[in-house]
Design a protein around this nucleic acid. Structure first.
Lengths: 227, 227
DNA sequence: CGTCTCATTGACACCCTTCAAACGAAGTGG
DNA sequence: CCACTTCGTTTGAAGGGTGTCAATGAGACG
C-alpha cells in the first residue's frame, strides 16, 4: 500500500476516505475500482431519493434495502449477504434506502465510471445486467410470498432461504431482528414471534435464543414451502 | 413482402410461422429480428419452467406474467401494455408464465441472437438492462404494496397506475377482469369488487360498467396513494 | 444489579377471506 | 325476438388469520 494509492483513493472516494481502510483502492469483480467502507449496525448506506453515486458489494455483514411510507410502514425488499451487489436498482436516484443490518464492511464503487465501462465493455454490461436480473427473480418470488402466502408459509420460506444462503452450520444464525424479519415478510413482529414459537411447538424447528434456529424437520418444512 | 422474407421468417420462427402475419421479418428497437404473433384472450405465450426461447414486445393488447402455486393461488407480477417488453426475466428457463389478458399482438424475437448481439453491442446490452431495471423498480413498489398497504390503498394505486399508463380518455378502460386485478393486488375478487363499490359510494370514482372507471376526485385519490 | 432494548405472550378487534346466493351482460338456439 | 345458458360481477353473512394494544420476560451492557 503506497502513498500514491491512498491519494488516489481520496480522489476517487472523498466521502469515504475517513472510514475506509487506509483508502486502499481495489478492483471489484465487476471491473470497477473502489474502496472498502465500514458501517455500524443500523447505519444508513444511502437514503431513498438520494442521488445514486455508488454501487456496492457486501464484503462482510448484512445490508437491507427498504422503502418506507410516510406513516412509518416499512417494506424490506432484500437482505444482501457477503458477495452480493446492491445499490444498482435505480437510475440517477436511489428508489430505496440501504442500511447495515449488522456491522458491515462494503466495497463501494463510483457509479459513473462503472457505467462508462459498461458502454464500452460488453462483459461488464452483462454482469451488471445479471445482478439486476438476479434481484428481479428474487423479487418475483417475494411478490408471490407477500401476495399469496400465509404467515407460516412466509416464515418457513424465509428460514429455508436463510439456511441456504448463510454459511450453514447445523444451526442458522439469523443476522437480523424480529422487526426486520417482519418488515421483510409483510407481517408484524408479534406474528413473526408467535409463528416462530408455533413452529417450535410443532417440532419443525428448534430455537436456541431468538437468533439461532435449527431446522429439525427439513422434509416437513419443504412441504410447507412447496404448497 | 417477398417470398425470400417469408422463408427467412420460417427459419427464424418456425413455431410462429402459422400464426404470424405472413411471417414478415421485422426489426425491434432492441435491434433483434422477429415476427408479429397473435394470441387470443387467455392464451399462454409461455409457461412457467418452459425453456426461454424468445423475448417479446407487446404491440397491441395486454399480457400478464404470473406465478401459480400448486393449490391454485396465483400472483400476477405485471401487466404489460403496448410497447413494453416481457419474457426476459430469466436465464434459460422462464420463471413465470405469460398469458394474453386480451386478444394481443406481440413481437417475438429469438432469445439467442439477441443475447449474442448483446455480447458485441454494448448499446443492446444497455437496453436489455434498462428493461430489466424498469421491471425491478416496479416490482419493488409492488412489494411495498403487497406487504404493507390496505385493500383501499392497493386498489387506488392500481387505478392511478392504469390511468397513467393506459391511453387516458376521461375514463379508464380496464382491460382485465376482477380476478386478474385481485391476483395482481394480492386480494380476493370479492374484496376488489367491494372496494370498488365503496370508492364509488365515497365519490372518488365512477363506474360505467365494471370495466370503465372515471377518476372523479384525483386529489383525494392521490392522498390515499401517498399515505 | 439496574437499565435498556428486543422478544414473547395474551386478549381483543377488525380487515379481509370464505362460502353462498343473487344479479347482470353476452352469446346461443329455438 | 325472446327464453335460456353461461360466465363474470356484485352483494350478504359469518368466520378466521393477523393486527393492535398492553404487559411480561429475557438478554446485553454498564
Amino acid at each position: 500500500m503506497s502513498a500514491a494509492y491512498i491519494i488516489e483513493a481520496e480522489v476517487i472516494m472523498p466521502d469515504f476516505r475517513r472510514r475506509s481502510e487506509g483508502g486502499l483502492v481495489e478492483r471489484d469483480p465487476l471491473g470497477a475500482d473502489g474502496v472498502r467502507v465500514d458501517y455500524g449496525r443500523g447505519e444508513e448506506v444511502f437514503g431513498e431519493e438520494e442521488p445514486a453515486e455508488c454501487v456496492y458489494r457486501v464484503i462482510s455483514g448484512v445490508v437491507r434495502t427498504s422503502k418506507i411510507l410516510a406513516d412509518g410502514r416499512r417494506q424490506i425488499s432484500e437482505f444482501y449477504l457477503p458477495g452480493e451487489v446492491f445499490g444498482m436498482e435505480t437510475r440517477a436516484q436511489h428508489e430505496l434506502c440501504a442500511e447495515a443490518v449488522t456491522d458491515a464492511k462494503v466495497f463501494a464503487m463510483r457509479r459513473k465510471p462503472l457505467m462508462n465501462l459498461a458502454t464500452t465493455d460488453c462483459e461488464t454490461a452483462r454482469k451488471l445486467w445479471a445482478v439486476t436480473l438476479h434481484d428481479l427473480r428474487r423479487s418475483q418470488d417475494h411478490m408471490l410470498l407477500l401476495g399469496r402466502k400465509s404467515a407460516h408459509e412466509r416464515l418457513v420460506w424465509f428460514l429455508m432461504d436463510m439456511a441456504a444462503r448463510l454459511p450453514a452450520d447445523r444451526e442458522v444464525a439469523l443476522p437480523m431482528s424480529r422487526q426486520d424479519i417482519a418488515d421483510y415478510l409483510g407481517l408484524t413482529i408479534e406474528t413473526v414471534s408467535r409463528t416462530m414459537t408455533q413452529l417450535q411447538e410443532d417440532g419443525l424447528i428448534e430455537l436456541h435464543g431468538c437468533r439461532h434456529v435449527v431446522l429439525r424437520d427439513r422434509q416437513a418444512l419443504e412441504i410447507i414451502t412447496a404448497a
